[in-house]
């Protein structure tokens, strides 16, 4: 474990806590893409299959349970909770995310570390996570003004993977035989997708103005 990965995990956890706070405090999920939440739930379920077979550490197990539990709870809330689901921007959240799932699965069959079921699913979860934020970014551009908590949620979600890239660079130089090229390339794509969001988020912070994404 290194400082980049730990702050990365804490940033990821913070993004989930901010999202839970927004939904719980405002009883609203306006501006949040249900499709991105469903993709993230699928990412965690596909990646953490080894939850009960490979014990890495208490930290690792606890975080996996938190990520799976929170992502499923958010999807359940947005689909079932009568007050929350009323505020869901159904007509704006129309990105066809099933194509993302199919595409990532095909890519995982072709490009993986080893053509074994767990490895293919792991690669699938890595590719899917890289593109899972697209419905959310599309929704933000369509909905124009972004409330603070939603903006902070998306910012933290993007920042965590940037910290993981620093972690991979650090591990590459400090650990012999360390290679996570699949995760690293996908992580670079994932972080690049946030580039313009980061730019407008920085502008809104610098000018102390409301976060506005050009539609």
């Amino acid at each position: 474990m290194n400082v980049f990965r730990l702050t990365g995990d804490m940033t990821h956890l913070a993004s989930i806590l901010v999202l839970l706070l927004k939904i719980y405090a405002t009883k609203s999920c306006s501006g949040i893409s249900l499709k991105t939440q469903e993709l993230y739930a699928l990412v965690f379920l596909a990646r953490y299959l080894n939850l009960f077979t490979d014990f890495i550490s208490v930290y690792n197990t606890v975080m996996k349970l938190v990520f799976i539990g929170s992502s499923l709870a958010i999807v359940w809330c947005m689909r079932m909770h009568k007050m929350v689901k009323r505020s869901y921007d159904q007509e704006l959240d129309t990105f066809r995310h099933y194509f993302l799932i199919a595409g990532c699965f095909l890519l995982a069959l072709l490009v993986n570390e080893k053509f074994m079921f767990p490895e293919v699913l792991w690669a699938f979860s890595i590719y899917l996570e890289a593109v899972s934020t697209i419905p959310q970014l599309v929704l933000l551009q369509r909905s124009g003004n972004v409330d603070n908590l939603t903006g902070q949620y998306v910012f933290l979600l993007g920042a965590y993977r940037a910290l993981y890239i620093l972690n991979w660079i650090y591990r590459y130089f400090t650990e012999p035989h360390f290679s996570r090229w699949i995760a690293c390339v996908a992580g670079l794509v994932q972080t690049a997708l946030y580039a313009d969001f980061f730019y407008y988020y920085f502008l809104s912070w610098k000018n102390n103005a409301k976060l506005q994404l050009p539609s």
């Binding site: 995990d9 990821h12 490979d54 990520f67 290679s179 995760a183």
Partner: peptide, 10 residues
């Protein structure tokens, strides 16, 4: 040495 195959990251 053995490549660290374990997926120790989240």
């Amino acid at each position: 040495g053995k490549k660290n195959k374990k997926k120790d990251e989240l």
